[in-house]
C-alpha cells in the first residue's frame, strides 16, 4: 500500500536544528491534487488512484480530456499520474493535500534528472580515462579504451557502455525525510536533493 502526491520542485535551501546542525532541504510545492479516477480490481484488473495537478489553459485541452476532468468536477489539469494500491480512501473529485504526510516521515521522491546532452564515457559511466598524460600519450585522456576482443568474438557485445545521451532519466530517491510542512502554502520540505531542475514535476510517495 502506498500514498503519494504530485508536486513541483521549487528550490533548495538549508535549515538549522535547535542544536545548530545545518541540513540542506528541497522545497516542493505539492498538491492540492484532484482524484480524477479510482480504478478497482473488479473493473480495471488492478487498484489505483489517478491524481491530477497543475492548471492548464482550456485551448490546450482536448474534448476527451475536458469530459474526463468534468467527471471529477474540476478544471483541466496539466499533469495526471496514477498511484497503485493507494492506502487513503478517496472518491472521484476529492482533493489530496500535503496533510497526508507528517513531519519526520521517510518518503521516496521520483523525478526526471537534468539532461546533460551527449557525454563521453568518463562523465557518463565513470570510466577513469587513459590515466597518463605523459610517456608519449597524446590527446586520448578521456577515451574509452578497448571495447572488445579480436577474432574470438568478432563483434561488440550488446550493452557495451559508450558515449551518448546522458540525463533525463526517471530516478527515484529513497529515504528522504520530511523536515517541515507548510499546509497553507502547500509546501513540503524534504531533506537532501531531489532529481530534476527547478520547476520540474516530482512525485512524493511512501
Amino acid at each position: 500500500m502506498m500514498k503519494g502526491i504530485i508536486g513541483k520542485k521549487i528550490g533548495m535551501t538549508s535549515i538549522f536544528s535547535p542544536d545548530g546542525k545545518q541540513t540542506s532541504v528541497t522545497i516542493i510545492e505539492a498538491g492540492p491534487c484532484v482524484v480524477t479516477q479510482v480504478k478497482t480490481k473488479d473493473t480495471d484488473g488492478y487498484s489505483a488512484v489517478q491524481l491530477a495537478f497543475g492548471d492548464k489553459k482550456e485551448k490546450h485541452t482536448t474534448a476527451a480530456e475536458k469530459n474526463h476532468f468534468a467527471k471529477a468536477n474540476t478544471a483541466a489539469k496539466k499533469f495526471v499520474k496514477e498511484f497503485r494500491d493507494y492506502s487513503i480512501e478517496k472518491a472521484i473529485g476529492e482533493s489530496i493535500t500535503v496533510d497526508i504526510f507528517t513531519e519526520g516521515e521517510k518518503v521516496e521522491v521520483v523525478g526526471t534528472t537534468k539532461g546533460k546532452g551527449f557525454q563521453g564515457v568518463v562523465k557518463r559511466h565513470g570510466f577513469s580515462g587513459v590515466g597518463e598524460q605523459s610517456h608519449g600519450q597524446h590527446d586520448r585522456q578521456r577515451a574509452p579504451g578497448s571495447i572488445g576482443n579480436s577474432s574470438d568474438a568478432s563483434r561488440v557485445f550488446k550493452g557495451m557502455r559508450m558515449a551518448g545521451r546522458m540525463g533525463q532519466d526517471r530516478v527515484k530517491v529513497k529515504g528522504l525525510k520530511v523536515v517541515k510542512i507548510f499546509p497553507d502554502k502547500n509546501y513540503i520540505l524534504v531533506s537532501g536533493s531531489v532529481p530534476g531542475h527547478i520547476g520540474s514535476i516530482v512525485l512524493i510517495q511512501k
Binding site: 538549522f16 522545497i27 509546501y187 527547478i198
Partner: peptide, 13 residues
C-alpha cells in the same frame, strides 16, 4: 531570490 524560498527563510530563520 525565489519568492517561495524567501517565504521559507522568513518562516524558519
Amino acid at each position: 531570490m525565489n519568492a517561495a524560498v524567501q517565504f521559507v527563510h522568513e518562516q524558519l530563520t
